[in-house]
Design a protein around this nucleic acid. Structure first.
Lengths: 145, 145
DNA sequence: AAAAAATAGTTTGACATTTAATCACTTCAG
DNA sequence: CTGAAGTGATTAAATGTCAAACTATTTTTT
């Protein structure tokens, strides 16, 4: 294959990848905003639900965002009474972030809806296509840089 | 297949799709920020380069952003002298957005780099994988809602 | 022609995001 | 023990993002 055609193929599949991912993100994200949560807020609550309380640094790495960002996201969640900060006593640099009851109820309900939405989105693909997509995307994500 | 396993498969391929897309976006985006452009700014300049001058509404739909957003992005590009607005004389509601010479030079150089980066990213996949990925992602992007 | 509807763009307000600077606290070396 | 270096969190500044309200202009209705 000529270099030119190779580049064309790459650009083409890149564009479809981005459009497809964006498309799914928007539609799934709607479930989160219906619950009054942004994507980041959802990510934080979901991490706390499934991994338990953790410090902000861990939250940040879990949802792939900067720690500066997390401070603000957690500020906003705290204002809504969905999470609570606890300054660690052993090492006072750390904050442990915990779900409140209200936060737990909200994320449990919302997570179920989001999960259903994801299943519906991916459901337009056959099982085999989903497996293939997963395998190919994993290759794309592996590289460091 | 049980419903539960189906959901699991969907969540799994969804996660890999998002991680893969994010990963590629970050690495390709680095080429843009090296040129002092944000992803949105790059998108606007690229549209103008390849489609010619157009009004803001068309720019917005081209890069899938809101018109309120485009106003700001173009404001910032204009400040940097990369684009120019011209209020249409036939219908004064429209602004035509044009590349300046400086803008054209910058986007031509940057586009070449980005194109190369995309080719490199997608190059970890075989040609067949790229075709398959494109086909599957297209299915994901088609639905409305 | 006047009123109503539609359209392009702008503004505003709330949140997100990154990078870099800074603060608070802990650890470690001398 | 004390000063330096390291680490978690916060803050600040710049940009982006959307939705919703608003302005200006044009088109459509009546």
């Amino acid at each position: 294959m000529k270099e030119d055609a190779k580049t064309k193929l790459a650009l083409n599949s890149y564009t479809k990848l981005m459009r497809g991912a964006e498309s799914v993100t928007v539609r799934v994200g709607r479930k989160m905003s219906d619950a009054g949560l942004t994507i980041s807020q959802f990510g934080v609550l979901e991490a706390l639900l499934h991994k338990g309380p953790m410090c902000q640094r861990d939250v940040a790495s879990k949802i792939l965002k900067s720690t500066g960002n997390i401070t603000l996201v957690i500020d906003n969640l705290e204002k809504q009474g969905l999470v609570r900060r606890e300054r660690s006593l052993e090492d006072r640099r750390f904050c442990t972030v915990l779900l409140t009851e209200k936060g737990r109820a909200l994320i449990e309900a919302t997570f179920a809806e989001v999960e259903a939405a994801i299943a519906a989105e991916m459901g337009v693909l056959t099982d085999e296509e989903q497996e293939t997509l997963g395998r190919i995307c994993k290759k794309l994500g592996l590289r460091e840089g």
